[in-house]
Amino acid sequence: MRPINPRGTWTLFLREIRRFLKVKMQTIVTPALTAMLYLVIFRYAMGDRDVPGMEIDYFTFLVPGLAIMAMMQNAFANTSSSMIMGKVMGMQIYLLMAPLSAIEVVTAFLAAAVVRAMIVATVFLAVLMPFVDISLQHLGLILLYGVAASLIMGGLGLISGMWAENFDNVAMVTNFVIMPLTFLSGVFYSVKQLPELWQQINAFNPFFYLTDGFRYGFLGIGDTDPFASVTIVLGSVAVTFVLCWYLWHIGWRMKD
């Protein structure tokens, strides 16, 4: 099916945004608050110490990491929850019956995931701004890595939602795949603090590049060269999008 329904795509995008805004306490306020709690806890646990190998205090180091972690987790939650709710409650058929191509559906879902991720990060950063001395060193990199992270995680959420048959399946992916990969992506530490072996393992975690590049955009320092990592990140976005498109196109686990 060729992409010929821009109004339908726009409507689906708006529907997805309206859906999470209807429960904004759960989808916006709570994630921003959770990220702030992490920050407060680590602030008091670590004191005024600097991050080893970086001339920056731990508090400032944490802020961009927590922001992108919240973005990634919420982008994933947005698409996966929408998909699994549709499947479990039987609403999925309306989307399958609509004259929307796979590209249109995936575009709408991922765009809405990006919007939710951006809102959560904006709320989190806006609340913190008066308390932390943080600048925007490279706004372009912040946007690039922020949007890329949301697209990748939104895509993974979409795939998980297509695969899952119940809420438990989605929770399993969230808790056993997404949470560990985001927690171990350098949100709370610099990879230079890790033993050599773990540094090498970490190099295979795509979320590490997202976190590091996003942080570089704010602080101008990081563990890798964010300009060199752009290829890995954009490649990951492309692979995720194509996979989402293909799976929706064939009706994977949705059509008998």
Binding site: I4, N5, R7, G8, W10, T11, L12, L14, R15, R18, Y94, L95, A98, P99, L100
Partner: peptide, 14 residues
């Protein structure tokens, strides 16, 4: 009313 407006849009109709 939202259900109907969304459905209309999904089918490409204003």
């Amino acid at each position: 009313i939202e259900v109907l407006r969304f459905t209309s849009g999904l089918f490409g109709c204003k």
